[in-house]
């Protein structure tokens, strides 16, 4: 994983609550066996019309969406299925962070494993940010992960929570599997005293 660095960016705004993973990437695009090419189908059914043409007024299709590294969304972002294709599609499009007031558990975990930062901010700051972007679509926010700070366009800094371990993994680009593999001795020792109880000889 590439180390996560601080950045500033404009935002794509999608102020819908409960955006589920079926909207982020519909199931019919999950038949792939690699991770590539998902950005084309990010928000597919909101983004393209019946004939497959981009809807000109959908936020991701606006010229200004290009180069935006932050998605500003409504409450409970990423609910629904466990598909990691959702953060894959978002990062392939160019997003490095999603800002919301809350995230669904599995989506949040999947994002952290793909260098996509879920930034949870209080409802009032969220409302303030929405208002700021409504006034000036070019407004930028700054993300400072080590300080856990999101600086709003007016200069006000809002703190966001993240557990120490995930933060460390993001900043250092730690490979989680490599980290678990190093604990082989402990796993072996645990297996000696733990019987899962499945009759593995059965057909």
């Amino acid at each position: 994983m590439k180390p996560f660095t601080n950045f500033s960016s404009r935002m794509v705004v999608l102020p819908v609550n409960n955006i589920d993973t079926d909207q982020i990437i519909p199931a019919r695009f999950l038949k792939i066996t690699t991770k590539e090419g998902l950005d084309k189908h990010l928000f597919q059914d909101w983004r393209y019309d019946e004939s497959g043409q981009p809807k000109p007024d959908f936020v991701l299709n606006l010229p200004r969406a290009r180069g935006c590294e932050i998605l500003l969304a409504g409450d409970n972002f990423g609910c629904g299925s466990s598909r990691e294709h959702a953060p894959w599609a978002l990062t392939q499009f160019g997003f490095r962070a999603v800002i919301s007031t809350s995230f669904a558990d599995i989506f949040r975990g999947n994002s952290l494993k793909n260098s996509l930062l879920p930034i949870t901010i209080p409802a009032e700051a969220h409302a303030e940010l929405l208002a700021a972007v409504a006034k000036d679509p070019e407004a930028q926010v700054a993300v400072d992960l080590p300080a856990q700070k999101l600086t709003l366009p007016n200069g006000r800094a809002v703190e966001f929570p993240i557990d120490e371990f995930s933060k460390h993994c993001l900043i250092e680009g730690v490979d989680e599997l490599g980290y678990i593999l190093k604990r082989e001795a402990a796993i072996r020792e645990f297996e000696m005293r733990h019987d899962p109880g499945i009759d593995t000889l059965a057909g």
Partner: peptide
């Protein structure tokens, strides 16, 4: 779990 964690469990039978 997501696909990264599927890989973790396949490899180590464990999860963080």
């Amino acid at each position: 779990i997501g696909t990264s964690q599927v890989e973790h469990v396949l490899a180590t039978q464990c999860l963080l």
